[in-house]
């Protein structure tokens, strides 16, 4: 039982190649930047009077500068990778299905003798390849750059943390693909996904609902700071990806052109 088709995956990668290049490039550039500016920021923070610092409290929690590793994690997993990764997931997912309908190419694609399921999962695979590449390449760039600094970074733990963040990014990608299937307009599908992301982050603001927010778990704080592998959230995130994609596929298979 085939679920993917190479020609279809290559087609999607080609259509999204700028997202792949720009997304990976942007993340890699940020990775290099934040690996190198550690001392400058630390010295700057120490120069700022205590009351002024309060205002930046959110940006730089007090214990950030206790070690280079913690600094890297807090700026990478808890900030840049999550933010840019979320945006990249939405940009990648929104046009995968809706783009075919909006551009009226669905009729051509769906009259090739290939099952709808294969079309859907090939598209999902192409999106996942883009996101995995962007996260892996940029995180490796980060570790490589850090190795040129006098500080040491816990490369293995950072990679595992990046994996947890990636899983969260894939959840957002799967949500976006579901919208891309439901709404035949990429921009509107992306807008719907943004709305969901805003709602999810709103959950993270309140103490009572914090645990329900995806963003609470995908920054891998419990793993990196607490040293506990978050098995339950990881399983739940993986399940969410599967359920969302299967649901999207079901809808896609019944779609009329």
């Amino acid at each position: 039982m085939t679920v993917m088709n190479k020609a279809l995956i290559l087609k999607e990668l080609r259509e999204a190649r700028w997202k792949l290049v720009v997304g990976t490039g942007l993340l890699a550039a940020m990775a290099i930047g934040l690996a190198l500016v550690y001392e400058t920021i630390r010295d700057f923070i120490f120069m700022v009077p205590q009351d002024q610092l309060e205002r930046y409290g959110n940006l730089f929690p007090p214990n950030v500068f206790t070690s280079y590793s913690v600094y890297i994690w807090s700026q990478w997993n808890a900030k840049n990778l999550t933010q840019i990764g979320t945006i990249l997931a939405i940009l990648t997912g929104m046009s995968l299905i809706a783009g075919e309908f909006h551009g009226q190419t669905a009729g051509f694609l769906l009259t090739r003798p290939v099952s709808r399921r294969v079309v859907f999962f090939s598209k999902a695979a192409a999106g996942a390849i883009i996101l995995v590449t962007a996260v892996t390449v940029s995180t490796l760039t980060l570790i490589l750059t850090a190795s040129f600094t006098p500080h040491s970074v816990e490369a293995g733990r950072l990679l595992v943390a990046a994996g947890i963040t990636l899983l969260g990014i894939l959840v957002i990608f799967a949500v976006t693909m579901l919208f891309s299937t439901l709404i035949e307009d990429p921009v509107k599908a992306g807008g719907a996904a943004v709305l969901v992301v805003v709602l999810i982050s709103a959950l993270g603001l309140l103490a009572q609902t914090r645990k329900l927010s995806l963003f609470t778990h995908m920054n891998a704080a419990r793993y990196f700071l607490g040293g506990v592998f978050p098995a339950v959230p990881v399983v739940l995130m993986a399940l969410s990806v599967i359920v969302l994609l299967v649901a999207g596929c079901q809808i896609f298979c019944k779609k009329e052109v």
Binding site: R14, G103, Q104, T105, F108, T111, P113, V114
Partner: peptide, 19 residues
């Protein structure tokens, strides 16, 4: 799928991948 394997189709306005 079996139908599509044996059928050729020219649509009224066939949008194909322009790129």
């Amino acid at each position: 799928l079996q139908v599509l394997r044996k059928v050729g189709y020219v649509a009224e306005v066939q949008q194909m991948y322009g790129y």
